[in-house]
Every structure is written in C-alpha cells, then in structure tokens.
Amino acid sequence: MNWDWNAVAEFMPHFRDGLVVTLQALVLGSLLSFTLGLVWTLLMRTPTRWVRWPVGVFTEFVRNTPLLVQLFFLFYVLPEWGLTFSALTMGVIGLGLHYSTYTMQVYRAGIEGVPAGQWEAAKALNLPLRRTWTAVILPQAVRRVVPALGNYVISMLKDTPLLMTVTVLEMLGEARLFSQRAFEFTEPVTVIGLAFIVISYLASLLLRSLERRLV
C-alpha cells in the first residue's frame, strides 16, 4: 500500500470544485423533492380516484426503479423530445423527482399525525379549505416531519455521485477525472469517501440538534 500525500495535495483544488457542485445538487435536489413530495401528498388526498390512481402508480414506479436508469432516461430521452437542459439541471430534476416519492410518504405520515381536533377546530372556526391547510394543518405537519426529511437529505447526499454518469463533475466525477489524468486511484477515491462520511456525520449531528429544537 503506497499513499502519496502529494497526490492528495494536487487533488485538493479539484476536490473543492467537486464539493461545490455536490452541495449545489444536494440543496437544489432537496428543495425540489420537498416541494414535489408535498404536491404528490396533496394530490393523493383529492377525492377523485382519477387523480389518485395515476399519481399513486407513477410515484410507486419511480420509487421502485433505480435512480441511475432514471437519470439515463432524463439525459438521453428528454433531448429526443426536444427538451435540453444543462447536465446539472437534469441531475437535480432526477434527484428531486426520485426523492419526492420518498418525501411524499413522510408528509403523509405528518399530516395523518395532526390530531383530529385540529381539523374540527378549523371547521368550527369556519376556515376555508385553503386556510385550514396553510394556517392549521401544514405548519403542524411539516414541523413534525423535519427530522425524517433530513434523513432523506442525507440519503440524497449519498446518491449525488450518480450524477457523474450524466457528465456532472461533482466530487466523484472530479476524482475520476483526476485519476485518469494522474494515474492515481487510491488517494482521490479515498479522500472523497472520507469526505462523504464526514459530511453525512456532520449533517446527522445538525439534524439531531434540529430535532431537539422542533420536537
């Protein structure tokens, strides 16, 4: 086993570039998944099954198929339909869409966890449906589910390396590029592996303190 600190030092600027892209994809992907997940949950509560059924099948399908193939689908099929985005946008859409099918279940559990008395109180106050949701149900539901959503952000972090396959230069993409140029595999891959462990550990600490504040 030969470890070369020079290679680590040379890799560092690339590592920083990759880290920025990884975090960008993570933040945007999380925001998209939080929003889309909420949309799916609300659609699943509409009274007509003509909405519920297609949404249910679609989200079930997305949840049970590999993100990697979904990324390929977005990357190669959308241009055939005349839709072109940058690689990072495509990656963010892929991550956000995939994880929205997980966050929708989190929201559902959160909404079901709001006590029935709150619904009844809203009805007694004669609040319109929109106000019932925005002022009574969602603020309580979302508060409860923040820790669970945070766990999915950590999972998503660990899926960001997949974006490498659709030409996004995030951490693993940078590491691979560097390895191919410098013929050093051990250092870059180990460095980013450790970086992932450190980031997800810090994120879980942050989450735990957030959990204590909210719940």
Binding site: L157, K158, D159, T160, P161, L162, M164, L172, A175, R176, V189, T190, I192, G193, F196, I197, S200, Y201
Partner: peptide
C-alpha cells in the same frame, strides 16, 4: 458503511 455512498464503495 452507512456514511459513505455505495458507488464510492464500488469505486474503491
């Protein structure tokens, strides 16, 4: 192993 990504493990 939970902290790192499956793809990075695979590269490794």
């Amino acid at each position: 192993f939970r902290g790192t990504s499956a793809l990075i493990m695979m590269f490794w």
